Amino acid sequence: MASPTTPGRNPASARPGRHPQLDPDTSAAFHELATLPDGPRRQRLREEIVCAWLPMSHRLARRYSGRGESDEDLRQVAALGLLKAIDRFDPQAGTAFGAFAVPTIIGEIKRHFRDDLWAVHVPRRAQELRAQVHRARLELSVRPGHAAITVQDVAAHTGMSYDDVLIGLDAQKTFTALSLERPLGGEGTQQTLGDLVGQEDPALGLVDDREAAAPGLRMLPERERRILYLRFFMGLTQSEIASRVGVSQMHVSRLLRRSCDYVREQALAPQP
Rank of each mutant, 00 (worst) to 15 (best):
D209G: 09
R231P: 09
H157A: 00
P183S: 08
D170N: 11
S161I: 02
P183G: 07
E187Q: 12
L220G: 11
L180E: 04
R210K: 11
R231M: 07
V154D: 07
D209M: 05
V207C: 08
Y229W: 13
D208L: 07
G186P: 02
L178R: 14
L228T: 09
A148S: 09
D153E: 07
G216W: 00
L193R: 14
V197C: 05
Q172H: 09
L217G: 08
F233M: 13
G194T: 08
T158N: 10
A212W: 05
D195F: 07
A148Q: 11
P202G: 02
R182I: 01
L169R: 14
V151S: 02
T150I: 00
E181T: 15
M160K: 03
V197W: 01
T158Q: 00
R225P: 04
D163F: 09
Y162Q: 13
R218A: 14
L217C: 14
L184I: 15
A156P: 00
L206V: 12
R225Q: 15
R225C: 09
G168P: 08
A177K: 08
D163H: 13
A156W: 00
S179C: 12
L196M: 07
M160T: 01
E187G: 13
E224R: 13
E181G: 06
A177R: 01
L193Q: 11
D164P: 02
E211N: 12
R226M: 12
L220R: 08
G185V: 04
V151G: 14
